[in-house]
């Protein structure tokens, strides 16, 4: 008798959504492109060099690491490209390129791969790498040049100027005296800062793409930015101009849209996301207003990353039929 040909069996379901890890990562890369273009436009071609070095070294380190450990090749999932882009976007344009390579090593090898690779890291690789660089090379990391379209001289970031303001006095006139760029310039990113963080329009465009493609949920960006907005309004005695400035300064938009929403380092459930976003917002505000550092986005997100497992535990969602069961039990006990 002819051997019978058997069909494939597997557990249900027998149909899968077309969404893949690679597809998700590609969407994030697409969402990051406008901010990159804006960065190169604002800070000149050197920005492109920084981006290229970061991406290439991140992908290189990932390939090297998995090869050395004989793990399956993982650069195809494109997550290393995103890490490289985010790292570059968080660096000032004049940073020495070898520092970019060190940053990439920290991000990919130490933060991501040593903890088990994609999905296993407890802290955002790009943010941790930025903080390591900031602590190690403080002067290079805070050497901000003014946008190419203006004069390329070292200058203070708007946040540094804002930080010096005495909020008890007349905020408006102090801002005027501080020589800050116009609000329009802030919206379009023509100001001193890191490569990818300055152009609010480009970042919001990217955010829209991520939301439309359902890559991220709006909860974290909204609660993060919203918390900062509310707190800044309170602390500035409802000075709208000042609050708008705070929201557009530093890495808040980049952090809230692209870094705080990182899958592996933020909570899965809705309530957890809300707590996470509010936590980031409170920390950012506190660091900006009450600490000696001008900027607090990276530190806030890193700290909340570490708290993520705890948040998930505390905010664990109730499954279907759970509440009812308890109530019924109580009702029965009451009746008996």
């Amino acid at each position: 008798m002819e051997e019978q040909k058997l069909f494939t069996v597997s557990a249900s379901p027998h149909t899968k959504s077309p969404v893949t890890v690679q597809g998700i990562m590609l969407d994030v890369i697409i969402a990051l492109i406008p901010a990159g273009i804006a960065g190169v436009g604002i800070f000149g071609l050197r920005a492109l060099a920084v981006i290229a070095v970061c991406v290439a070294s991140c992908v290189g380190f990932e390939a090297l690491f998995v090869k050395l450990l004989k793990k399956p090749m993982s650069i195809g999932d494109l997550s290393a490209v995103i890490t490289g882009l985010l790292l570059a976007y968080n660096l000032p344009v004049e940073i020495p390129l070898w520092m970019c390579v060190i940053g990439s090593f920290v991000a990919i090898v130490i933060v991501k791969q040593l903890f088990g690779g994609i999905g296993q890291n407890f802290a955002n690789p790009a943010i941790t790498a930025r903080i390591v660089l900031l602590v190690s090379f403080a002067s290079a990391m805070t050497n901000f040049t003014a946008p190419k379209v203006l004069d390329a001289v070292s200058t203070a970031t708007p946040l540094a100027t804002l930080g010096a303001i005495d909020r008890a006095g007349d905020i408006g006139s102090q801002m005027m005296a501080g020589g800050l760029p116009s609000l329009t310039a802030m919206v379009f990113g023509v100001r001193a800062g890191c490569i990818g963080e300055t152009c609010a329009v480009a970042l919001l465009l990217g955010c829209c793409w991520l939301l439309v493609r359902r890559v991220i949920s709006p909860i974290i960006p909204l609660s993060y930015i919203g918390t900062v907005a509310v707190l800044m309004l309170l602390f500035s005695h409802f000075d709208l101009y000042y609050t708008a400035y705070e929201l557009l300064s530093g890495g808040l938009l980049l952090g809230a849209v692209f870094m705080a929403t990182d899958y592996s380092t933020s909570p899965i459930n809705k309530k957890g996301k809300l707590v996470f976003g509010i936590g980031c917002g409170v920390l950012t505000t506190v660091i900006r207003l009450f600490c000696s550092l001008p900027e607090g986005v990276s530190y806030s997100i890193l700290l909340m990353n570490v708290l993520c497992p705890l948040i998930e535990k505390v905010t664990a969602p109730k499954y279907f039929g759970f509440v009812k069961k308890k109530k019924e039990k109580k009702a029965k006990e009451g009746a008996a």
């Binding site: 890890v21 899958y263 592996s264 899965i268």
Partner: peptide
């Protein structure tokens, strides 16, 4: 719809899709 199994990226889509609110 065969799909190769790759590591979990903690994206939360499974939880978002679960009608029973499980993770």
């Amino acid at each position: 719809g065969f799909k190769k199994e790759t590591p979990c990226i903690h994206c939360g889509r499974c939880h978002a899709a679960c009608p029973m609110g499980l993770i």
